[in-house]
Computed example of a mutant assay.
Amino acid sequence: MATEHVLLGAAAKFPVNSTSPIISFTPVIIPSPGRPAELQLRVTAPSTGDALPIILLSHGHGPSNWLSSLQGYAPLAEFWAKHGFVVIQPTHLSSRTLSLPSSEGDEMHWKSRSEDMIQILDQLDHIETVVPGLKGRLDRSKIAGVGHSFGTLTVSLLLGAKNTDPRDGAVYSPFERRIKAGILFGGLGNGGADMSENGRKMLPFYDLDFSTMHAPTLVVGGEDDVGPHLTVRGADWHWDAYTHGPGPKDLLRVKGGRHGFGGISGWDAAETQDESPQRLGFVQRTSLAYLRSQLYEGDDSWKKACEVLAGLNELGSVESKS
C-alpha cells in the first residue's frame, strides 16, 4: 500500500524505519518428491537493499476459502517487506485451497507444516535463483518464524516446543536452530484438561509442552479472543507460550483484540471480527519493532515501542520475562 490508512490513529505514534517499494512473486515451486502437492510459496521482498533478514510466515486454518494459504496475510507480509524483510509464505497441506485428506497421527497435516518450513530453509539457494532480483540479497543469519492461530503450532515446534500425542505418547520436536526468534499471533495454548471436548476432537494429537521453547518469542494475545471451540479457558489460553515457556519471552496484550488482530489475515476479510486499521497498525508496528531488535544486536526499536505503549493503554500492554 502506498500510504498509511487515515484511520491509523494512535498507532502512528510507534516509530518505524523508512519504507521501500516491494515486489511479490508467486508461485515459487519447491521440488517436493513424495509430497501430495508441490510446495508453493509467495515471496514478498523490498525492491532494493542487501543483507535482508527473512521471515517465514505460517498461515492459520480459518474459515475463509483463500486466506489460509500463500494468498493470505498481505497486511503483515507487505508491511514487513516495506520495512526491509523478505517474507516467505508457503501453502501448507492443511490449506482449504488444497482440501487434501490427512492421516491418523498427522491430522490437519500438522507435522508436514514444520517440514515445509525446514524445506524452505534448505532451499534458499533455489528461492534466490527463482525470484527475480533476489539473488545474493538474503541474510541467512537473521531468520524469524511467525505464525497465526494453527500456524503458531508450526512455529512453536520450530522454536523448541514439543508435542506429545496423548493417544500413544509419541513425541514430535522438529527444533530448527536457523530460526533465531518468533512471533505467535493468537497461539494455541495448553492441551489436556484445558481443551474443550470439541477441541480434543479437532486436535486429537495435541498436547504441547512450552517448557523447552527457549528461543526469544513475542506472544501476541487478544484480550477478547475467547475460543470455546478449542478451550474451556478464556483469552489467556492463547498466551500460554508466554506463561509456561522459559524466557526470553514478551507478551503483547491487545485491548479489544479478537482472533483477527484488526485484520492481519487479509484486507477487509470477512473472518475478521475486530477489524480496525488502528489495531492492525498497532500490531504491524510493534511486531516489526520486536523482530528488528531480536535480529539486530543493539537495535532499540522494541524498547522504544514499549515506551510508547506505556502511554497508550487504550491499545494494549506489554510484559516481559528474561
Rank of each mutant, 00 (worst) to 15 (best):
A2S: 04
H5G: 02
A10W: 03
A11G: 05
A12D: 12
S20M: 12
S24H: 02
F25Q: 13
I29S: 11
I30K: 04
P31C: 07
S32Y: 07
G34E: 04
P36N: 10
E38F: 03
Q40C: 03
L41I: 05
L41M: 01
T48R: 05
G49Y: 06
D50A: 11
A51R: 07
L52E: 02
P53E: 00
I54P: 02
L57Q: 08
H59G: 05
G60D: 08
G62Y: 06
P63Q: 10
P75E: 07
P75T: 07
A81Y: 00
K82R: 13
I88N: 08
I88Q: 00
P90G: 05
T91A: 00
P101E: 08
S102C: 14
E104N: 10
E107W: 11
E107A: 06
E107C: 11
M108F: 14
S112C: 09
R113A: 14
S114K: 05
S114R: 05
E115D: 11
D116E: 06
M117T: 02
M117N: 08
L121K: 10
L121H: 06
D122R: 13
D125P: 01
D125K: 13
D125M: 07
T129E: 15
S141A: 12
A144G: 14
G145Y: 10
L153P: 06
L153V: 15
L157A: 14
L158P: 15
L159W: 13
G160C: 09
D165T: 14
D165R: 15
P166N: 12
R167L: 15
G182F: 06
F185W: 10
G191P: 10
S196C: 05
E197F: 09
E197K: 12
M202K: 11
P204F: 08
F205C: 04
L208E: 02
L208G: 04
H214V: 12
H214Q: 14
H214K: 11
A215Q: 09
V219G: 03
D225Y: 03
P228T: 07
L230G: 03
L230Y: 12
D236Y: 10
H238A: 07
D240M: 01
A241S: 04
P246R: 13
G247V: 00
P248C: 14
K249W: 01
L251E: 06
R253Y: 00
V254F: 02
G257W: 01
G263N: 02
G263F: 06
A270D: 14
T272L: 05
T272M: 06
Q273T: 08
Q278K: 03
R279G: 04
V283P: 02
T286C: 06
T286V: 14
Y290Q: 05
S293C: 08
W302T: 07
K304L: 10
E307I: 03
L309N: 05
A310T: 12
N313T: 09
L315T: 01
G316T: 07
G316Q: 05
K321R: 15
K321I: 03
